[in-house]
Design a protein around this nucleic acid. Structure first.
Lengths: 201, 201
DNA sequence: CGGATGACCGACCGATCTGGTCGGGAGACG
DNA sequence: CGTCTCCCGACCAGATCGGTCGGTCATCCG
């Protein structure tokens, strides 16, 4: 088996997966046609189905890839001590991933923020895991912070997807990191009451 | 012509328009079927097409209603003097509308934030007008602030659409208002450079 | 009471689109 | 030359599309 060849192929497939994830995140599984994905990646429908044997297989590959990306972010901050520094590290890591793989992040965020609204597929588990990096437990009252974090993150992913004007991403990165940290942090003037952000073991 | 009757009918139609707007905002025009809207409003397809003669007519009615709502918000803050107070009034007005008509606001925000991603329809003009209430000109460099405002607002509309748990909306309102004001305001620690927010005549 | 009206539905229409298959062309490799 | 991989156009059967039709209710008028 060729090393360089399979590596190149994996790179091609990852590009497909990222764009496919963006479409699945936006429209859900059933409302996204194979033709849509094929057009997005610049292939014919038959050409896309040459890489993945079926639409379901493509979707499973997208989910697996999203899980990979999510776990990578989790590992990146898991060994750091709890506190403000870990929050910043987690935020920056997630923001960087959102810039590199906007489609994947949009897909991970979609079930939590109900962007699709259909509850079409059962992929809520992994997004919960990703949000645990922030010390956010969805069943608690810190869902309000979730509103702001997810909002900023989703907007970043969406904007990165829409306009790939490379020059502006660094600016966006700075602002989104600031917004997320503000949302996570304890009270500031005109903001949340000064209760400490809940960080779990 | 019956006064009470037409008033009731208009109320029913507005309920339809709000839910239809949410679907159009999420999936775009072509990807939203008449059956989808009919299911969302609890009617059969034929029953829905009894209220609106065609899918295009339904969409135009949705757009007209959205324009109404947008202009109402604009008028509500147009006569106030420029400055921080007007910003707050504009934010609170828009947030209140987002709570009352989440579908409409999601539709107005969709073209600006490219939530649909397809550039499916030409409805960008009215969202620009709505954002002018914040003194935000999309062609300027304050698009970064736009990221945060739109993110918070979109998340609010989406969450309001998803879970109509009435008790939490007031909490969300407070947080979203705070986030939008922070995004609009001059520099704070770890945030945007202290340049004044651009407010035009 | 009969009759008219409007809201609404189930069934159905032709047209389009769906996921998926098949045969073959283009180019690289040997 | 043959073979292999990558990819495409054409095509299939079935689902879905927007829209129409006849008809059933409940309500209101006289």
């Amino acid at each position: 088996m060729g090393d360089v060849l399979s590596a190149f192929r994996r790179q091609v497939d990852e590009g497909i997966l990222d764009r496919a994830a963006a479409l699945f995140a936006r429209r859900g599984f059933t409302k996204t046609s194979v033709q849509d994905v094929a057009d997005a990646v610049g292939l014919s429908k038959a050409g896309l189905l040459h890489h993945f044997p079926s639409k379901d297989a493509l979707y499973e590959a997208v989910l697996a890839h999203a899980e990979d990306v999510g776990e990578r972010v989790l590992r990146q901050v898991a060994d750091q001590p709890l506190g403000r520094d870990r929050d910043r590290a987690a935020v920056e890591a997630l923001v960087d991933v959102a810039l590199a793989h906007p489609g994947i992040v949009a897909l991970m965020l979609a079930p939590a923020s109900q962007l699709g609204g259909d509850a079409d597929e059962p992929r809520a588990a992994q997004s919960e895991a990703a949000l645990h990096a922030f010390g956010v437990t969805p069943d608690q009252a810190d869902q309000e912070r979730l509103v702001r974090v997810i909002g900023a993150l989703a907007a970043l992913a969406v904007l990165t997807l829409a306009a790939h004007s490379e020059g502006k991403t660094t600016v966006w990165r700075r602002h989104v990191v600031a917004t997320c940290l503000d949302a996570l942090g304890p009270g500031r003037p005109g903001s949340v009451p000064p209760e400490h952000p809940s960080v779990e073991a």
